[in-house]
């Protein structure tokens, strides 16, 4: 378990390292989802290195905080963090998406230490988080549950069933993190099937809403602390992000949702991430 919170520059350096892993992993695998992995990286790094109560040497520690990557296709960033923190050897990152690998194309609870639920079919993770938060309440445990959602993902009706349930049961040990990068596979979210306005919708379902810049480390850390302090209702952090963040030619480009960089493109991307 971590005892010290890293400094902002340390977190920023770690985020660059994770982004470099993501580019290398996807280039090696020849497929995967760079855009959303890169938009979520800062939020994930701040959570794992700066907030989450967990123990990489004891992944099933009953008192640990839970994290669910409901937008499961962005698992390369999560895998890189889990490896860097010691859940499994960093060398395993090279096996992403290969036959027999512990690192599947989407998260698999049975294969990967540190993964709390299999995900990838969008819209299901928040409901699982509701279940974990209820279990904490039943058992009188103090752990918190974090669920990361995509802003295209919230077009799934089940997300709103879960939002209703979390509001109804006043699950203040549940925190959703919305990676609001504005793009989905077929285009901008407001063109494809607008889920807007997002903060108002969550507020109407009984949630406390915090809006931040999802690439500003101090804002992210502060939001995690503020969410924990809110009692009597769940909190969602609506984090404005840039899809493909950190790699100039991927930023805000719909086409980089689900394709891997070529070796040349990877080299160019890595040169920017120093």
């Amino acid at each position: 378990m971590l005892n010290t919170v890293p400094t902002i520059p340390e977190l920023q350096a770690k985020a660059r390292e994770i982004r470099r892993h993501v580019i290398r992993m996807l280039a090696r695998a020849g497929s995967g989802h760079p855009g959303g992995s890169l938009s979520a990286t800062d939020l994930l790094v701040a959570l794992y290195y700066g907030k989450l109560k967990h123990d990489p040497k004891n992944p099933k520690w009953p008192e640990r905080d839970r994290f669910i990557l409901s937008k499961g296709h962005c698992c390369p960033a999560l895998y890189a963090i889990l490896a860097e923190m010691g859940y499994f050897p960093v060398g395993e990152l090279d096996t992403l998406r290969q036959l027999g690998s512990s690192l599947q194309g989407h998260p698999d609870i049975k294969r990967t230490p540190g993964i709390e639920i299999s995900s990838g079919s969008l819209g299901q993770g928040l409901s699982v988080g509701v279940g974990m938060a209820l279990a904490a309440r039943i058992d009188g445990r103090s752990y918190r549950v974090y669920v990361m959602l995509g802003d295209g993902e919230v077009e799934e009706g089940q997300v709103w069933e879960a939002a209703m349930a979390a509001g109804h049961y006043r699950l203040d040990n549940l925190c959703a993190i919305l990676d609001n990068n504005g793009l989905q596979i077929d285009g901008p979210i407001h063109d494809v099937m607008s889920p807007l306005p997002l903060p108002e919708k969550w507020d109407a379902f009984g949630w406390h809403v915090i809006r931040i810049d999802g690439h500003n480390m101090s804002q992210i850390l502060e939001a995690y602390d503020r969410a924990e302090a809110i009692k009597g209702k769940p909190t969602i952090i609506v984090a404005k992000t840039v899809k493909g963040k950190g790699v100039s030619f991927m930023e805000n480009q719909v086409d980089w949702h689900g394709k891997a960089p070529t070796p040349e493109q990877a080299e160019k991307a890595l040169a920017e991430l120093v």
Binding site: S127, G131, M132, L134, E161, A162
Partner: peptide, 25 residues
Amino acid sequence: ERFFDMGIAEANMMNVAAGLATCGK
């Protein structure tokens, strides 16, 4: 204290059960 009516929302209910099961319920 061990019964939850999840309303008319079966998809959510199934995955809430999944979350409970990961915690030993």
